[in-house]
């Protein structure tokens, strides 16, 4: 008797289910997605949600204490120059718009000079010489009801025509 050859066990092929190749593609895809997720997670991890930095807002004392010219009173503590002109007061942030060094005030030359790359600024903050691309920032400055100046370094303006108006300028002529 001739034995009929045993038929090879047939693999159930179903077009609906995942093919071998499809499964591998899915697996690799899942791995790539996982690694991408880990990378994105690590990147996000490096950006803190809470920073423990000092407040940018401070009380600069009575406005009447500031004589005409550039005051260095708050430079060491707050990195801000308070400037009084005939018409009123404004506050310049002591951070060079080039790369963030602190310029020094040279009264005799009537200009700020940055020690890092040599940018020069006028008392209004405009660039006179050197590589700085933008004028110095004017901080928000307001006169409190008791006559104190409240300066906020988080609100800044450097466009001519805007920086000369409230809240970046305290008009003492009208007051």
């Amino acid at each position: 008797m001739v034995e009929t050859p045993a038929t090879a066990p047939k693999i159930e092929e179903s077009p609906d289910l995942l093919s071998r190749r499809g499964f591998m593609q899915l697996a690799w895809g899942a791995l790539a997605a996982f690694l991408g997720g880990v990378a994105a997670n690590s990147l996000r991890f490096l950006f803190p949600n809470v920073v423990y930095e000092p407040s940018q807002k401070f009380n600069a004392g009575p406005a009447v204490d500031y004589p005409l010219g550039v005051s260095l009173k708050w430079m060491r503590e707050q990195r801000v120059w308070v400037v009084r002109r005939e018409q009123g007061l404004y506050a310049l942030w002591g951070r060079c718009t080039h790369l963030g060094c602190t310029p020094s005030w040279f009264g005799g030359e009537d200009r700020f000079k940055c020690p890092c790359h040599g940018s020069n600024f006028s008392p209004q903050g405009d660039v006179i010489a050197g590589p700085a691309p933008k004028p110095l920032w004017h901080c928000k400055i307001e006169l409190a009801s008791n006559g104190d100046l409240i300066i906020d370094k988080a609100v800044l303006e450097n466009r001519p025509g805007f920086r000369e108006n409230a809240p970046y300028f305290v008009d003492t002529q009208g007051a």
């Binding site: 060491r76 503590e77 707050q78 020094s104 890092c116 040599g118 050197g130 590589p131 691309p133």
Partner: peptide
Amino acid sequence: NPTVTPNPSKAPWYFLGLQELLVYFDP
């Protein structure tokens, strides 16, 4: 001291070329 920059403020020598380059072009 975060409010006072020494004058002049120079990077170590191997970055001074870059610091000097920054004088001529935008950051």
